[in-house]
Computed example of a mutant assay.
Amino acid sequence: MPQVVTLGETMVLLNPTTTGPLKYATHFIKQIGGAETNFAIGLSRLGHSAGWISRVGNDEFGRYIISFVRGEGVDTSQVKVDPQAPTGVYFKERHEFGESKVFYYRKGSAASRLTPKDLDEAYISGAKYLHITGITPALSDSCRQTVLKAIEIAKSNGVTVSFDPNIRLKLWSVDKAVEVLMDLVSRSDIVLPGLQEGQMLVGANKPEEIADKILQAGAKTVVIKLGEKGAYYASGGESAYVPGYPVQRVVDPIGAGDGFAAGFISGLLKGWDLTQSVKLANAVGARTTQVVGDVEGLPTLEEIDYFLGRKREVER
């Protein structure tokens, strides 16, 4: 059984070869993108076993996704092929400076038809961690019920639940997102919000205040992502700021948060303390931003050593 199990939608990403408004783009690279598979692939590259639960369409895009994710070392045995719904697609609009934009074509997708019946209790209960995001419950009522059932299985079998809010306001309103995601916060052991996500969820501004409110809601550990400044964590009576690793140029920021989550859980799986785990998370997140694509920049441990200057790479 995989050490870590996650569930959610992965789509085909059509990424333009040029920056600027999407209406002027004429050539695209076919890639994949999905918070949960980004996370799972990140863990696999860091030396851990991960499994992914989902649905894809009975189409070429669905087959491509399964092949790609399996090729990255992630177990796809729990991915079902749905003959009645398509695989989702999205487009990315990249800019030289500022945030990238994404445009989804996922309504009625195969993954939005996930139900609790798609879950194998033994598969989840055999893991050490269940990782969920706030994207999956936004896709449909059945997806939300599937997430809740997965958490119930994990909790009843001593599996630690990790939750990245990953707020997507193109999928639902702020009020609905806060209602549903705070319920998931209360059911999770580890919560990994970005600063703006934390501010939106609990109505506080400072990382310390956000962490306190999330802990009061029921979580045991909170790690707040602060971009190039690093992260702030709090767990029980322990808390600290951990500096980040600024990069000279951010090529593509999408996927960095999923890489951060993978780095943090990787540290915990290795038996590291919270500070060491957050340091690894910061490094993975920073390294991920230097390559175009959601998963292409996710590093191995050896690449992290090069990135941090602990090893000198032989270029010739």
Rank of each mutant, 00 (worst) to 15 (best):
P2M: 11
P2S: 12
L7P: 02
G8N: 11
N15E: 12
K23F: 12
Y24Q: 15
F28T: 00
F28G: 00
Q31H: 14
I32E: 01
I32K: 05
G33M: 03
G34F: 02
T37L: 04
F39E: 02
A40V: 08
G42W: 00
L46P: 04
A50T: 06
R55Y: 06
N58T: 05
N58I: 01
E60F: 13
E60N: 10
Y64K: 09
G73E: 05
T76K: 06
P83I: 09
G88M: 09
G88D: 14
V89I: 15
V89D: 01
H95V: 05
E96I: 12
S100E: 06
V102H: 09
F103M: 13
Y104I: 07
Y105G: 05
A110I: 11
R113H: 14
L114S: 07
T115D: 04
P116L: 02
P116K: 07
E121S: 11
E121A: 14
A127S: 10
P137W: 13
S140I: 08
T146F: 07
V147E: 01
I151W: 01
T160K: 13
N166V: 06
V174H: 15
D175C: 08
D175W: 11
L181A: 05
M182C: 13
D183Y: 10
D183T: 11
S186D: 06
R187Y: 10
R187F: 11
D189S: 04
V191I: 12
P193G: 05
L195K: 04
M200D: 01
V202K: 00
L215K: 03
G218L: 09
K225W: 04
L226W: 06
Y232P: 01
S235A: 13
G236C: 06
R249S: 14
V251D: 06
G255L: 11
G257A: 12
G259A: 12
A261M: 03
A261Q: 02
G263E: 07
S266Y: 02
L269G: 01
L269M: 10
G271P: 01
G271V: 03
D273M: 08
L274W: 00
V278S: 00
N282I: 02
G285F: 01
A286N: 13
T289L: 13
G293F: 01
D294G: 09
P299T: 05
R310W: 15
E313Y: 11
E313R: 14
E315Y: 09
